[in-house]
Deep mutational scan, measured.
Amino acid sequence: MDPFVVLVLCLSCLLLLSIWRQSSGRGKLPPGPTPLPVIGNILQIDIKDVSKSLTNLSKIYGPVFTLYFGLERMVVLHGYEVVKEALIDLGEEFSGRGHFPLAERANRGFGIVFSNGKRWKEIRRFSLMTLRNFGMGKRSIEDRVQEEARCLVEELRKTKASPCDPTFILGCAPCNVICSIIFQKRFDYKDQQFLNLMEKLNENIRIVSTPWIQICNNFPTIIDYFPGTHNKLLKNLAFMESDILEKVKEHQESMDINNPRDFIDCFLIKMEKEKQNQQSEFTIENLVITAADLLGAGTETTSTTLRYALLLLLKHPEVTAKVQEEIERVIGRNRSPCMQDRGHMPYTDAVVHEVQRYIDLIPTSLPHAVTCDVKFRNYLIPKGTTILTSLTSVLHDNKEFPNPEMFDPRHFLDEGGNFKKSNYFMPFSAGKRICVGEGLARMELFLFLTFILQNFNLKSLIDPKDLDTTPVVNGFASVPPFYQLCFIPV
């Protein structure tokens, strides 16, 4: 058959498939802009700032609406009420993970971030239990974070109060905490193996944040037939998995079943207990991918939040002064901060919360999916439909947070200066898919920041009023603009 005829037939089939998918069930789905064949609503979305586009569309179609990214149908949730109703009140029905062709290629359905069903539930339950087990290797997770915080302070001392970009050092600290939990080992910041790991993690975040990856996920045929950065992403992930597998083999040879040292040991012990169960989800494949998931999810998000926190503290020296006064009063100079201190430091706690609220790190979270046909607000959402959640619409709700575009710790303080919780605080998402490392991340943010401010004054290279804190939105995360500062020993 003539190649031209084959091409026309293929394009015609794709067009018909697109029209059929977009028209099927439209009477039951939430409203939304009319999609174009094949490309859907992509032309109506700013790929570099999806969150802003969703906010604009919500003003037209309401808090629940339908979009098509290519052939992929998505239902968008915008605003606290619908997000709570879906992710919390109907948590089980909305607990699936959205379709990610690239991740599915890399992870093969294993791990904790992109798995679904029984596998996801069992691996998540085990990971939560293990991360909360403060007795691994007779050292609590808090001990590990405190140790890394001391190392971080010593690295900052080496800058000798000269101007520096904190990106690298602030990236090393949370990565080392995860390494300590998974591998029972922290690395020197100049260790070549550690630097290679950091390089792969950072490069992957840069790649994932590009519009090209959005295109690959919406048109998965590209993955096999086109060159691009997605190939580098898959190569980096394969490198990390190979490295983790080597460490798993080392653990198998040296493990003491009665004295687990780290996450890998705990997983291997669980595998041993379930070795007679042919349906067990505790396999080497799941261990390797879960460890890679924890490394990827637990490094860049925390380091970016820390980097943004220091920029905001530079911009608002009056806030920094209040935090340091609270540190001096509650902790002093002669001991290290600990998590028990947080309950006695409402202002510092409010500042950490406000940093996370203000920066809105992951504006749309990772997409969910419905696990069955769901009736939601008089609409029928078919099983498997991807759910896109606007966390921006919750964290920047102007009824809950007056002047949401302003950095103001009073958003989390009552009139008496006591810490005030808010149900709208969802930087880790909400419901059954809430970030498994939430507790660890909150511990790291509090301890790293208090250790830094206990030991250093922060000095800006320019007038604080002239510092730009506008986030650089890159399609996946909101990151701070480049800046330098000086760490002046107190």
Score class of each variant (00 low, 15 high):
S18T: 14
D143M: 09
C13Q: 04
S303F: 04
K235T: 14
F226P: 04
I213V: 14
I434K: 08
M271V: 10
H230L: 06
K383C: 06
R26D: 13
T283W: 02
I264R: 01
P63F: 02
V473E: 12
G70D: 00
D49L: 03
Y379D: 01
R377C: 05
E203L: 05
R206S: 10
E285A: 12
E72G: 06
W20D: 01
M255E: 01
V113Y: 07
Y358V: 12
F219T: 05
D349L: 09
N217S: 09
V5W: 10
F487T: 03
A441N: 03
T469V: 11
G171H: 07
E155Q: 11
C13E: 00
D463A: 00
F65L: 05
K399Q: 15
K160T: 10
I45T: 04
P404T: 08
T320I: 10
L366K: 04
A309H: 00
F263V: 04
L9K: 03
R377D: 04
I42H: 04
N196A: 15
F407Y: 05
V82W: 05
L458M: 09
E253F: 14
E122H: 08
G384E: 05
S127I: 14
D349Q: 13
Y61E: 01
R150H: 12
T469M: 12
G296F: 15
V319E: 06
R108H: 11
R26Y: 12
Q252L: 10
G416K: 13
I215T: 07
P480E: 03
C216S: 08
R105I: 06
Y80S: 05
I223N: 07
V323G: 01
M136W: 14
T348I: 04
L128S: 12
D468G: 11
M129E: 15
E318S: 11
F4W: 11
S12Y: 08
V351Q: 01
K48S: 11
A369W: 03
L9E: 00
G91N: 11
H411R: 10
N116I: 04
D165Y: 02
D293T: 05
V153I: 09
R97T: 03
S51N: 13
R333N: 14
D468Y: 11
R307T: 11
R410Q: 11
G417T: 06
I387C: 07
